[in-house]
Simulated scan of single mutants.
Amino acid sequence: MTTIGTLYGLGVGPGDPELITVKAFRLLQQSPVIAYPKKRIGSKSYAHQIAELYVKPDAGKEMLGLVFPMTRDPEILEREWNNTVELVWERLSEGKDVAFVTEGDPMFYSTFIHMMRLMQEKHPEVPIVTVPGVSSFLGAASRFNLPLADGDEQIGIIPATEDREAMRRAIEAHDCVVFLKVAKVLPMIIGLLKEMNLADKAAVATKVTSAEEMVWTDVRELKRAELGYLTLMVVKKS
C-alpha cells in the first residue's frame, strides 16, 4: 500500500525572503510538491516568490499553483475549495509530501487554515504539520523599532472593519492595537484616532519587510491615501 503523504503548512514570513525559518527551508528542499496561492492575474504572491527563491529549478519538484476565489458566494466557494483540496489530495494519495507555503504564519488569518480544516473533513487520514512563520505585525514592530507589549501591557490584534464603535472599544481596551487590513477603512480609523488624541501614537506600514515596503509614522498624511490590501496600523498608547 502507498503511504499517504504529509501536508505541511509552511509560514514563510511577511515578505523579506530571509525571514524564513530553517525548518521551513528544509521542508521546501525535501517536499516533492510545493503548493502556493496563485493569483489569476497580476504579480506573484510573496509566498510564491519566496518558494521559488529557495527551490532549485532542476530539483524535479512540482510547483502546484492553487487559485482561491475572492468571492462571498457560498456555492462558488464550496465548489472551488473542494476542487483545490482534491488537487492536493491527488498528490498526497500518491505518497508525495505537499508543502503549502503561506505568507506570515499558517495558523494566523491564513488561507492554509481553511485548507487544513477541509482536508481533515474530507480526508482525515492525511497527516498535517504546520511550521510557524513571522507574521506581518511582528515585522512591523521590528521595522518601527517599537515594542508591542512589555511587562503587563495588553495587545489586541484586530481585523479593521467599518464598525467604528468596535474599533474605538478595541483601542480603549488595550495598551497597543494592531489593525490588520486597515486600508479599506483608513480615513475612519484616522478620524477616530484624532478624536481620541492618539493620532501621534500610530504608524502604518504596507507590504512590510518586502522590497515594496512603505512606512508612515505620521498617519495624518494618509487620510486620503489609497493603500493596498497588505497594510496594517500599529497604535501604541504608552
Rank of each mutant, 00 (worst) to 15 (best):
M1A: 15
T2A: 13
T6C: 14
T6I: 13
L7A: 12
L10E: 02
G11N: 11
P14D: 09
G15Q: 11
D16V: 08
E18T: 11
L19W: 08
V22I: 14
Q30T: 12
S31P: 04
A35G: 14
Y36W: 12
P37K: 06
K38H: 11
K39C: 10
R40H: 13
G42P: 11
G42H: 07
G42I: 10
K44W: 02
K44F: 06
S45H: 05
Y46Q: 09
A51C: 04
Y54E: 10
Y54N: 12
K56I: 02
K56V: 05
K56D: 15
K61T: 06
E62W: 00
G65C: 08
L66P: 10
T71A: 08
T71F: 06
R72S: 11
R72W: 01
D73T: 09
P74N: 08
E75N: 12
R79Q: 14
V85S: 01
E86D: 13
V88L: 12
E90S: 07
R91N: 11
L92F: 09
G95W: 11
A99G: 03
F100K: 08
T102W: 00
E103T: 13
F112V: 02
F112K: 04
F112L: 05
H114K: 10
R117E: 15
M119W: 02
Q120W: 03
V126I: 15
P127M: 08
P127R: 12
I128N: 04
I128P: 05
P132E: 04
P132W: 03
G133Q: 01
S135L: 03
L138V: 14
A140K: 03
A140E: 07
A141Y: 05
S142H: 08
F144K: 05
P147H: 09
L148N: 05
D152M: 13
D152I: 12
E153I: 12
Q154R: 15
I158R: 07
I158D: 05
A160T: 10
A160I: 09
E162P: 01
D163A: 10
R164H: 09
R169P: 04
A170M: 14
I171K: 07
E172A: 15
E172P: 06
A173F: 09
H174L: 08
F179D: 04
K181V: 02
A183W: 00
A183V: 04
P187W: 10
I190Y: 03
I190W: 00
I190D: 04
L193K: 10
K194I: 15
K194S: 07
M196H: 03
L198Y: 03
A203V: 08
V208Q: 00
M214W: 02
W216I: 07
R220S: 15
E221R: 14
G228I: 05
G228W: 01
K236W: 06
